[in-house]
């Protein structure tokens, strides 16, 4: 599948790094990154909710920036670095956003949570201590139908605390 071991790689194959691992996407340059992740790479954490970049369930990091995987085509990701929700933790150590959402139970069905967690990760990278208004603005493109958002706001603040604690410890 990776084009290694003497398997011929089609000429329109796209090379990309996903969760730190070089991958080759062979059969779908015109497909969306979301379809490639779920169908070709079996990374099911990135969800389909709308297919038009409105719900945020398919949010991934592309070179550290949050993007809607349903709005990016496979041919656009060639040479880029993609991180999905599966790539956020280091082994068993959750990243601060994951830790905070889990600790506060900031979800109900949880279907939106991978996207929210990725979106929060991107937010905290650019704004380590966001105000509530900044959190609302950053997550405006993420829909949750179950939990009513209030716990999500708290979880993002908690994630910010956790990352600052971690930074202090490692400083």
């Amino acid at each position: 599948m990776d084009g290694a071991g003497g398997v011929t790689v089609a000429s329109d194959a796209v090379r990309v790094v996903v969760n730190g691992r070089p991958r080759t996407l062979e059969r779908m340059p015109e497909r969306s990154l979301l379809q490639a992740l779920r169908t070709e790479l079996d990374l099911m954490g990135t969800k389909y909710g709308c297919g038009e970049g409105q719900c945020g369930a398919c949010t991934v990091l592309m070179d550290g920036k949050a993007v809607h995987a349903c709005q990016v085509s496979v041919k656009e990701v060639g040479g880029h670095d993609i991180v999905t929700v599966e790539g956020l933790a280091r082994g068993d150590e959750l990243n601060p956003a994951q830790q905070a959402f889990a600790e506060l139970g900031a979800f109900q069905c949880g279907f939106c949570t991978p996207g929210m967690v990725v979106g929060t990760t991107a937010l905290l990278q650019r704004t380590p201590s966001p105000s509530e208004a900044e959190v609302r603005e950053a997550l405006e493109g993420h829909l949750c139908r179950c939990c009513g958002y209030t716990k999500v706001l708290r979880a993002v603040q908690r994630a910010s605390e956790i990352s600052r604690e971690k930074a202090r410890r490692s400083a």
Binding site: L43, G45, T46, L94, Q98, G110, T113, P114, V117
Partner: peptide, 16 residues
């Protein structure tokens, strides 16, 4: 909760 935040929880649309 850990399954939810790591994307490991399998929803109906994730069954393969």
């Amino acid at each position: 909760a850990v399954d939810v935040v790591t994307g490991r929880r399998v929803y109906a649309s994730d069954v393969r």
